[in-house]
């Protein structure tokens, strides 16, 4: 019976795997974040639930799912409901094109990175809707900060990725990894790597650029009014975005799945890929608990006066070197 083509079944299975990967990741990363934060501040972090508090996030997740979602008065209800979904769904769908190993990739689009960037651009819209529909000054201020920051930092981010794309001549994630067989691009393009990493910290609203949710001034920023699983979806989306940043960095600069050979490298390359991704994510957490939050004018000056010029010069030099 050829009712369901094999391609359809394959996509179905990989979607289920990707969704469970994202959920599992968020659980592990919340735990890691709290533990690392604890140890950096010389305290143990979560310790009560399970050995060394290892089940803490599972219990927290269950609690969030059981909670009632409270709708404050005078909100714009349809938009209030759409916003968390819009923050979560695109972040998960983007994982479809991530090459975990030579064979573990759901779809190899020939414009994979544009697919990811297009979906990532919806994140800003979600934050805006959340902030605006909450009818709360903290939410609105958080959302407006977020969009100013995201629009500004998108430019150096794209410039740095473009420098790599000049060298690979392809937008497919898989061929970008394969182009790094002789040498990782972090060696050839160190400036692009730094620009991308810093800009992506700002794009994911992570400290030291977490002004949209600066808890000491804005309560929780754009998701102040959200509770229960609506809040949980924002959280899942944020961690999915962090892993996505790690995955893009690994694919573009750290050679993707390449590493010391393992048995069944076509599949087990995912081990090296994930190891690099988690290292990047760990550095993001490390940054968060090391640097204080920047002021808004510093944030904007840093982007427009340092990152964008450096990105442009780097791009021009790359183009010149490739042409000569």
């Amino acid at each position: 019976m050829a009712l369901l083509p094999p391609e359809f079944i394959r996509i179905l299975i990989s979607s289920v795997l990707i969704v469970s990967f994202v959920f599992l990741n968020a659980m592990i990363l919340v735990y890691i974040e709290r533990k690392v934060a604890g140890h950096i501040q010389r305290r143990p972090g979560p310790m009560e639930v399970g050995p060394h508090g290892i089940l803490q996030t599972l219990i927290d997740g269950l609690k969030l799912m059981g909670k009632q979602i409270i709708f404050p008065d005078n909100i714009d209800k349809p938009l209030f409901c759409i916003a968390p979904l819009l923050a979560f769904v695109p972040a998960v769908v983007a994982f479809v094109v991530i090459p975990f190993s030579p064979k573990l990739q759901a779809v190899d689009l020939d414009m994979g990175i544009i697919f990811i960037l297009a979906l990532a651009s919806l994140n800003v819209l979600a934050i805006l809707l959340a902030g605006w529909s909450s009818n709360n000054k903290y939410s609105l201020i958080g959302a407006m900060r977020s969009v100013a920051q995201n629009i500004a930092y998108e430019i150096p981010m794209l410039l740095s990725l473009l420098a790599v794309l000049f060298m690979t001549n392809s937008l497919s994630m898989k061929s970008i990894v394969e182009a790094q067989k002789p040498l990782w691009f972090i060696v050839v393009q160190p400036v692009a790597f730094l620009i991308y990493f810093i800009a992506s910290l700002a794009e994911t609203n992570r400290a030291p650029f977490d002004l949209p949710e600066a808890e000491s001034e804005l309560t929780a920023g754009f998701h102040t009014e959200y509770g229960g699983m609506a809040y949980g979806l924002f959280y899942l989306g944020e961690y999915a975005n962090m892993v996505m940043v790690g995955a893009i960095t690994t694919t573009f600069f750290l050679g993707g799945w390449s590493g010391p050979p393992l048995p069944y490298m076509e599949y087990s390359g995912a081990f090296w890929f994930l190891a690099k991704v988690y290292f990047i994510v760990f550095s993001m957490i490390w940054f968060r608990w090391t640097f204080p939050r920047v002021r808004f004018d510093q944030l904007m000056n840093f982007c427009w006066k340092i990152m964008v010029p450096f990105g442009l010069v780097n791009l021009m030099i790359t183009a010149l070197v490739l042409k000569i």
């Binding site: 005078n74 414009m111 544009i114 960037l117 979906l119 990532a120 651009s121 919806l122 819209l125 805006l128």
Partner: peptide, 30 residues
């Protein structure tokens, strides 16, 4: 596929967000 992705990236992701930004300066739900 390329044009369709560009449509989302540029029109939804950049232009609409810029317009929302301008609108948010003018009115809130109340």
């Amino acid at each position: 596929f390329f044009i369709s992705l560009m449509q989302v990236l540029i029109y939804v992701g950049a232009i609409c967000v810029t317009i929302v930004f301008a609108i948010m300066l003018t009115e809130t739900p109340d």
